[in-house]
Design a protein around this nucleic acid. Structure first.
Length: 635
RNA sequence: GCGCCCUUAGCUCAGCAGGAUAGAGCAACAGCCUUCUAAGCUGUGGGCCGGUGGUUCGAGUCCACCAGGGCGCGCCA
């Protein structure tokens, strides 16, 4: 399903999964059961401060309900005049405590001031408590990051939850085009993100190789086969004989036709080299063509940096009888009946006529209307097979199924959600991430994709032109939910306005400094691990602390992005971190004593190297989630 | 006609599960730099968060209605 190869443009859109109001009780470890057993992550500074605040709050309000405590947040302040972090603890607990928030805030501030981590705490505004941390509290994070490496920021939020992310799932009817690539990138990055957040993740591709489209593809390949063996038929004559006409006229099938000729000789045609009865060749040609197309698609995906764990075939699902079994199961549950649907209001199709159909009672699970499972020729609808496919995933033990779909499939979501609920008995959650259309722009002009006009922009073309990293990063600089403009010129720009470049450049600069340091101080190991034990007290500049403050946010960004299923947040975080780092770097332009490497100041230099190395780790870690290569130097 | 999504600075977009004075880049304006830390730096101006009501101590964020844009609406996937 998803982005059919006929979608006019590119990708698609987003979603809005009804997020479980209260993050769902969660099977084993509560995703959010922090009220009881907080999944303390010692390297998450915000989380540990939260524990401190909750402890202090519990002394002021001993009988504070757990659901109130769960709403207590520690957030970075927007304005450093307010300190480093703020908590809403007093405001959210005011009602339960029957005290004005200002009073609670004042008491809380008093208790928090002067702790091991907190320098000052003061009540402010409508009941915030602003926290100012000892600079040493932030600096202490550097050894933690350096020792943890790229595992810094890993979360335990998803522990015990198995998630299947299905994405791309393009019809195997041709090479991938730019319309597929947003879903591919978003799905892949989302899966990486969920993995980092502690979920057990499977990346999956559903091969839609059972429908009429694939039959049409086989006919088209057969035409190329006839050409390969020197058939006298004209294209028009052939097209007239094909049910539904000759589709898929792209040249990419020529090689398939030639391969068929090489394997079978003239055996698939009549002796006079015209169309043989379909029964003699259709399945064979279908097999070979689908295999060829999938090889093509997998190659395209590999070039995009996407490698899925499982490829499931709709065709084999049907052939194995699994689809029939699942439908029979629903029937046994009384969820299937023969009935006649009402025509849609306001827009009655021309050829509408009431007709009894085999229907699934999706309305029992929140859908608008019941949905047909069989076509008039007796075969399954796409939906019917998709139910079976999702039932298969459910049987494989996942707790959450996420489908990354094109926006044009938004209407499909409620019925699939209903089906998953029905099949799993409500145990498994179904979520959809919808990707909006991407408009490709080049030189200020829209690049239209039209098969008829022959301007069929393939993913391969796009990758050749701008490269995998730029494509992936750019696709993640916008919420999947919203339409996006992809400017081919801008993603190649080497300026700050190109986030791909800007972030890559920050990482390259970090690495460059570390390489230079190795030359400058050959006797002082500058590995991450060695730097974890250097004294960092000299890091007290505003720009230096700004970078560390940013690094401290990484774990909460990962967790929030994973929970919201929004991988684009990683891209924005990296951009901000890169900006902080570049600013620090630029300080050294005017004032050379602020440069990282000071040949006569080894201790100060090592402290700065610790900061640089930690920054590189977090950038690398974020880029890895996005599937973008962290480069060592800019070329 | 119905349903879902979107609407934030001139432009492209953020806004982290309702929190303080709504942010960034580009463009504009004003300075600085001409560097081997190349692919600039610093600062300024710029907003009725589509509109109107509502819920709340507090709304860009939640609810209702309206307007504009996108997608979908039986045997296509």
């Amino acid at each position: 399903m998803q982005a059919s190869p006929f979608s006019p443009d590119c990708c698609s859109v987003s979603h809005k999964r009804p997020r479980p109001a209260c993050p769902r009780p969660s099977p084993s470890t509560g995703v959010r059961s922090r009220a009881k057993t907080p999944p303390m992550n010692p390297s998450d500074l915000y989380e540990s401060l939260r524990e401190t605040v909750l402890a202090a709050l519990a002394q002021i309000i001993p009988d504070l309900p757990a659901e109130i405590a769960a709403r207590v947040e520690i957030t970075p302040t927007k304005d450093t005049a307010h300190g480093d972090m703020a908590t809403n603890a007093a405001m959210v607990s005011a009602k339960a405590a029957r005290q004005p928030p200002g009073k609670i805030a004042a008491t809380l501030a008093q208790r928090l001031t002067g702790g091991p981590a907190i320098a000052t705490a003061e009540a402010a505004g409508p009941g915030f408590v602003n926290l100012r941390l000892h600079p040493g509290t932030f600096r202490a994070l550097l050894p933690t990051i350096l020792a943890a490496g790229e595992s810094y920021g890993d979360s335990t939020a998803g522990a015990g939850t198995k998630i299947n992310v299905e994405y791309v799932s393009a019809n195997p009817t041709g090479p991938m085009h730019i319309g597929h690539c947003r879903g591919a990138v978003v799905g892949d990055a989302l899966a990486n993100l969920l993995h980092k957040a502690g979920y057990t993740v499977t990346k999956e591709y559903y091969i839609n190789d059972a429908g009429a489209q694939v039959a049409a593809l086989a006919w088209a390949a057969y035409w190329r086969y006839l050409q390969a063996i020197g058939s006298p038929m004209t294209e028009d004559a052939f097209a007239a004989a094909v049910p539904g006409g000759l589709q898929y006229k792209g040249e990419y099938l020529i090689a398939v036709g030639e391969a068929l000729q090489a394997e079978f000789g003239p055996a698939l045609a009549t002796p006079d080299k015209t169309i043989a009865p379909a029964g003699l060749w259709l399945d064979t040609v279908k097999d070979r063509t689908i295999a060829a197309m999938m090889a093509e698609i997998r190659q395209d995906l590999r070039l995009l940096g996407v490698q899925q764990d499982i490829y499931s075939s709709e065709r084999s699902l049907v052939a194995s009888g699994a689809a029939d079994t699942v439908i029979a199961g629903l029937e046994a549950d009384g969820l299937i009946y023969e009935g006649v649907l009402e025509p849609p209001k306001g827009k009655t199709p021309d050829d509408w006529e009431p007709r009894p159909q085999t229907l699934f009672r999706s309305t029992q699970f929140g859908d608008d209307v019941d949905r047909p499972l069989r076509k008039s020729d007796g075969s399954n609808t796409y939906f019917a097979n998709d139910i079976a496919y999702h039932a298969d995933k459910i049987a494989r033990g996942y707790d959450v199924l996420i489908d990354v779909l094109g926006a044009d499939h938004g209407g499909y979501v409620p019925r699939m959600k209903a089906a998953v609920k029905a099949v799993s008995g409500g145990r498994v959650a179904f979520e959809a991430v919808l990707c909006q259309i991407v408009h490709i722009v080049k030189g200020g002009q829209p690049v239209r994709m039209s098969k008829r006009a022959g301007t069929y922009v393939t993913l391969r073309d796009l990758l050749d032109e701008v490269g995998k990293d730029a494509v992936r990063f750019a696709m993640l600089t916008r919420n999947a939910d919203a339409q996006m403009e992809f400017d081919l010129d801008k993603v190649l720009a080497t300026t700050r306005e190109n986030p791909v470049f800007y972030v890559q450049y920050a990482h390259a600069r970090c690495r460059s400094v570390l390489r230079a340091a190795a030359d400058m101080f050959p006797d002082r190991p500058s590995t991450d691990l060695a730097l974890a034990s250097v004294a960092t007290d000299s890091l007290d500049g505003d720009a230096e602390l700004a970078v560390i403050r940013r690094l401290a946010q990484w774990p909460r960004i990962v967790q929030a992005a994973a929970l919201a299923r929004e991988p684009h947040r990683i891209a924005f975080f990296l951009y901000d971190l890169a900006a902080d780092f570049h600013m620090l770097w630029n300080r050294g332009k005017d004032d050379t004593t602020l440069r990282f490497l000071q040949p006569d100041q080894p201790h100060q230099t090592l402290a700065r190297l610790a900061l640089v190395a930690a920054t590189a780790i977090v950038i690398r870690s974020g880029l890895t989630v996005m599937g973008v290569t962290p480069v060592e130097e800019m070329r």
